[in-house]
Every structure is written in C-alpha cells, then in structure tokens.
Amino acid sequence: MRGAALTGADRLVLYVLVGLGVALLFVPGESGESGEVVVEGAGGFRAVVPLAEERTLEVPGPLGTTVVEVSGGAARVASSPCPEKLCVRAGDVAEAGDVAVCVPNRVVVRAEGHERGEPDATSR
C-alpha cells in the first residue's frame, strides 16, 4: 500500500466533498419552524426571542402592560389592556409572516424569516 499519498480516486472524493460543502453554503436556510419572534413596543422596546425558548415578556405601552408569552414553539399575546383584544384573538405566531398586533397599546409580535414556501404577503 505504498506509493502516492493522494491517488486519483482520493482526489475525486476530495473534490466531491469540498464541492458539496461549498454548494450547500448557498442553499437558503430554513427559518420556518425553528425561527425567532420579534416583539416590539412603544418607546423603542424591542426583544427577539427564539421560539425554542419558554419566556414571558411584559411589554409596556400607553394603556398598560401587554403580556406576550412564548412557549411550545409559538408566541402569543396572553393579555393586553386594550378594549377589543384583537391581539389576543390573533392566535399563535410561529411561522414566518404570522403577526399579532395590539394597536392601542402599540405592541407588535411577529415571526421573522422568509421561507421559500411562504407567500410574499397574506391578504387577511
């Protein structure tokens, strides 16, 4: 088994390995499920929370405190001092494009990231 250190077949393996590695660098990453959620509030409040974490955020606003809960891979508005509670009823924010907004208290909860399969925008 003596002889050249790098045979022709060895080189082929090397090229394939490096080629694959480089090629995969440019494949757009998935950011759907295991992404992050951006929570923004009045006065410059901003928090980025990975969806994998379990956290409760108290976001201050002109009407009071909006409580945003991140658990089980999704974020949601647990409570808010607004009259209509549309933000609470918006449901879970998890996939790219999901959003829950409390307009009176100026709180926005949205999922970051643009996945290939997700639409450019959703009419609702």
């Binding site: 090397l14 390995l17 490096v18 590695g21 480089v22 090629a23 660098l25 950011s31 499920e33 295991s34």
Partner: peptide, 18 residues
C-alpha cells in the same frame, strides 16, 4: 437542537471533514 440548525451546519461539517 432539532433538524434546521443541524442542517445549517452541514456545509461547515463537510468542509471541516475535508
């Protein structure tokens, strides 16, 4: 970590393997 972060590390893993 779940599939996605592991997949994202794949290119680095292959180049490191080289």
């Amino acid at each position: 970590t779940g599939a996605a972060p592991a997949m994202r590390l794949l290119p680095a893993g292959l180049l490191l393997a080289a």
